[in-house]
């Protein structure tokens, strides 16, 4: 039944209400749900939250898109050439395993204290994730599928367009599913580290420093909703455009 998804949130809010109304936790640590809601209303009505949402979304989408592009440029040759892959594997794995916050100071040195640094850090990590997904997708296009298409007379640009590219698309989208969440995570972290005028990460950190707990919770809630929505968007597009993935 579709309404069952409501059970979890309702219980969560119920427990939250009970805990706060009996004073089991100090409001500084956990404000009452109604306080958080009214904070959310004020933040949205008075404006700062909107510019934070726009700033964070802009950076996330920018990093995601750049990583999609660079991932493709890097991933296809990696998948086509075994030699190139072998030669790059260590560097790729090393860089991919590097926790991205570790390179924030480096990015600030190279790209300054603006958006460029934040986007660069997220783009870097997400590019590697995409490239590896695409490299595998390219390398593991079913050999017999290509052979059967060739036997049917497919060759050259036709083979690439009608057989090879569609075969790789599920791998590309699988990378996107990871990197859309990942770029949001990294962007929020960089907003906490690299000074800025607007951004949900920065705002959460500021509210925390100012002991404005209800505002902090409200902003976290918004961020959670954004993450959830982005995930759903990718999930639905996957069902729509690569519905056949793994099904033959």
């Amino acid at each position: 039944m579709t309404w069952r998804f409501l059970i979890g949130p309702v219980i969560l809010v119920l427990v939250w209400t009970i805990v706060t109304s009996f004073g089991l936790v100090r409001p500084l640590f956990l404000p009452a749900p109604l306080n958080v809601l009214s904070s959310l209303y004020v933040l949205l009505a008075e404006g700062p939250l909107w510019s934070d949402i726009v700033a964070t979304l802009y950076r996330t989408i920018a990093a995601f898109s750049l990583a999609a592009l660079f991932g493709l440029l890097l991933g296809v040759p990696l998948g086509v050439s075994r030699e190139f892959y072998d030669a790059s594997e260590f560097v790729l794995d090393f860089s991919r395993s590097m926790p991205s916050p570790a390179i924030i100071p480096l990015a600030m040195l190279l790209f300054g204290l603006g958006d460029l640094s934040r986007i660069a850090v997220a783009t870097f990590t997400c590019t590697l994730v995409n490239a590896i997904q695409i490299a595998y997708a390219v390398r593991f296009i079913p050999r017999n599928r290509i052979m059967a298409a060739r036997l049917a007379g497919a060759k050259g640009a036709f083979l690439i367009r009608h057989v090879l590219i569609p075969s790789v698309v599920p791998g590309i989208v699988a990378g996107w599913r990871i990197t859309l969440s990942l770029s949001l995570i990294i962007i929020v972290v960089t907003e906490m580290f690299i000074g800025t005028q607007a951004g949900l990460g920065m705002r959460i950190y500021d509210y925390h420093m100012m002991f404005r707990s209800a505002d902090m919770y409200a902003t976290i809630l918004v961020l959670g909703l954004i993450g959830y929505t982005l995930n759903k968007v990718i999930e639905l597009s996957e069902q729509r455009f690569v519905h056949w993935r793994g099904r033959l």
Binding site: R145, A148, H162, V163, V242, W244
Partner: peptide, 8 residues
């Protein structure tokens, strides 16, 4: 024959 079919 499954190899010959294009699943998309």
């Amino acid at each position: 024959f499954r190899d010959a079919l294009l699943p998309w």
